[in-house]
Nucleic acid binder design. Sequence first.
DNA 1: ACAATTTCTATAAATTTATGTTAGAATTTT
DNA 2: AAAATTCTAACATAAATTTATAGAAATTGT
Lengths: 151, 151
Amino acid sequence: MIRLSTKGRYGTRLMLNLGLHYNKENKAIVLKNISDEEEISIRYLEQIIIPLKINNLVKSIRGAGGGYTLARSPEKIKLSEILHALEGACCLVECVNDEEYCTRTSFCAVREVWKEASIMLKNYFENLTLQDLIKISKKKNPQTLKSTFNK
Amino acid sequence: MIRLSTKGRYGTRLMLNLGLHYNKENKAIVLKNISDEEEISIRYLEQIIIPLKINNLVKSIRGAGGGYTLARSPEKIKLSEILHALEGACCLVECVNDEEYCTRTSFCAVREVWKEASIMLKNYFENLTLQDLIKISKKKNPQTLKSTFNK
DNA sequence: ACAATTTCTATAAATTTATGTTAGAATTTT
DNA sequence: AAAATTCTAACATAAATTTATAGAAATTGT
């Protein structure tokens, strides 16, 4: 199965959640909040948010009253950046990005196909911003922000 | 990581291998051959070929002199059929095809994006035939058929 | 009829990767 | 100093992947 790992999926939801709470004040959101709303274990979120921080997609504020915020406004964050931070280069098969990965690279016809498909996917995510996700979310959930996350 | 499983990858190479050997006589190819040329364990190939047979993509001939052949000519076999046989429906995330999979389906904005991307991928594989793969392979390997599979 | 070849079936073991949890240290605010 | 919260490392569990084992069934050639 062609599958996106939970890191990518949960991390994207984490970012969307921060995006939905993003506003002028840009108040920090604690992981516990995100955990409750997104129904993802806080311990797992702690792991997932590390690469997002390293790649400068979120900012952290430690200590009481701390939490996380987006590092910049949602329209300036591409989905491809989020996925790249969480999962590395977007490729259906390792050999697409790492020619040395397999000794058959030079003559493997199948690789060409996986490569082409990977590029398609990459382009798709390249042209979607967090702002787009927020729009989709608000459209699907015209009610309050809170209800967006009902169980 | 967005990743195509080995079943899909190896199975596609298996099919391409059969395709490259496909000709008028349509002589059966033994798995040992494919195993040697593609450098995939014969034990694993035995497992992978089962769904290909069930889905009527290859035919088997038992006993001495037996082996496998394509069930029909390469231009009549779509890559999407191969992948579907090996991996089930093409979807980046389970919830894309199975709405019941997650309770958040009705309001999850992220799902829309995975769905869209899955459709893109599916269309791509829908429009590629084994014959296309064979062409690519022959173009990359203008020498003999044999050399295509040198290590 | 017999031996050799090869698919077919089932299961299990070993390995790797992905997912998730536990425990506690470090930092900051109140 | 206490509470809140991020940060870090290690551990535990589950799933996917790969290899291995053991033989049965079918077919061909001698």
